[in-house]
Amino acid sequence: MLFKGLKVIDCGSFIAAPVAATMLGDFGADVIKVEPPGVGDPYRATYKAPGMPVSDQPYNWLLDNRGKRSLALDLRQPEGQEVLHRLAAGADVFITNYPLAVRRKLGLDAARIRALNPRLIYASFTGYGETGAEVNKPGFDLTAYWARSGLMATVRTDAKTPPARGVTGMGDHPSGTSLFAAILLGLLQRERTGQGTQVGSSLLANGMWSNGVMAQAALCGGRYVPRPPRDQLPNALVGYYRCGDDRWFVLVSSNEERDWPLMARCLGQPELVDDPRFATQAGRYAHSRELIAIFDAAFASRDRDEWRRRLDEAGIVFECIAELADIPHDAQMREAGVVVPFEDDGQPTIASPMYVEGAPKRPPRKPAALGQHNEELLREAGYDDAAIARLRAARVVA
């Protein structure tokens, strides 16, 4: 395993910071998940929130905290902070996304933790960055990533519809991948210098990076062209269409001169190629509403599976717009290693989205129960039976 022997402390909550630790664990790191006693990380129960998919399994926790050892530790008590400090002194990476003021209160701010271990990589994740007037503003995926970056306004179906709302984790997961990359850079620097460092990222930075093309246009003084309704798109060969079974797919023509005759034949209307309105690209753009209406009528005449077969045979770039119920039956997901089984019971889960040739990932293991590894982690930190009993009696560990 690439990171075998690497000790990581995940002292974060919810998604973006903890998933960086999860990815390190996928490649063999020993990840210690530090949670408050009682209910633990509130993210454990998020799957029960109104509007979330209904399930008797904590699917969010299965995905984002697999393979970690759990330590239920009360960091409000000085003895709890001492336990964390002992662990940090022997760790390679310390990850947190607690608010900066909370870090200082709980004794896990960068200055305090880094002083314990000169080789430690301190990975900090925030909502709005660590400088500026808004450093203490609470930030979530929906606010700092989606709303502040302009994504909510940009990806709406058209300019007259309400802003689009992302789903749980849609900004957190790519943001966690950025933090994972920052940690790797920190480890590379440590390898070269022998010294640890602080690395980090934020939801604000990742939201802007995700919306980078449009945001850069704004920074260059570009004039934003409001997104038109679907049936008024400027190019019929780059759009999405409803089939006869009410399923959708999206077309993306990267070589329109090649694709246009193929599309006309695929629709069973080869005469469209010589239609004066559509014979040239300029003509197709000028008459895009008429062409979209023709496409709509044609695609509505057959089910999506039939169109999938026809478009595949024609060599046209497209993709079916999957619904969540389609995912468990998608063979390519498994064959490409995107969906993999848990080692414990074979239940499928989602792999982290990168690989290294010659460095296989550790098979995913189900997450630990809250505080499942308290005793063994305390022993690793140097506590004997009597000290562990005192910590339990004081409710420092659950």
Rank of each mutant, 00 (worst) to 15 (best):
P50E: 12
K68Q: 10
R104G: 15
K68W: 13
G67S: 14
I95L: 07
L120Q: 03
K68C: 09
L100R: 05
R69T: 09
L84R: 05
W61N: 04
R112K: 12
L100Q: 10
P78D: 12
N60W: 15
A88G: 06
A49V: 12
P58K: 03
I95F: 01
N65E: 10
E82I: 03
R69C: 06
R69E: 08
A115Y: 12
D74I: 11
Y43D: 03
R44N: 02
K105M: 10
K48M: 14
N117Q: 02
A101F: 08
V54N: 07
L62K: 08
P99K: 13
Y47P: 02
A89W: 09
P53M: 13
E79H: 09
K48L: 14
V54R: 11
N117G: 08
D74G: 10
L73H: 14
G107I: 12
K48I: 07
Q81F: 13
A91C: 05
D74W: 14
S70L: 08
L71I: 13
Y98G: 01
V83P: 02
D92Q: 06
A49Y: 15
H85G: 00
P58Y: 15
D56W: 10
L87I: 10
L116K: 04
A115D: 06
V102G: 00
L106T: 04
R119F: 04
R44D: 01
G90K: 04
S70Y: 14
R66L: 04
A88S: 14
A45W: 14
R66F: 09
R44H: 10
K48G: 04
M52C: 06
L73P: 04
L71G: 06
P58I: 11
Y98L: 14
L108I: 15
Y43P: 00
Q81D: 07
Y59Q: 00
V93F: 15
R119G: 11
F94Y: 13
G107C: 06
N97I: 05
D109G: 07
R112H: 12
R114H: 03
R104P: 00
F94Q: 01
R112D: 03
A89N: 09
D109I: 12
L62D: 10
T96L: 07
Y98A: 10
L75V: 09
V102K: 13
R44E: 05
S55C: 11
G107E: 03
A110I: 07
V102Y: 02
Y47L: 02
A111I: 07
P99H: 09
V54L: 14
K68F: 14
V83A: 01
P53A: 13
D56M: 13
A45V: 12
L106M: 06
F94I: 00
S70A: 15
L100W: 12
L106F: 15
F94D: 04
K48T: 14
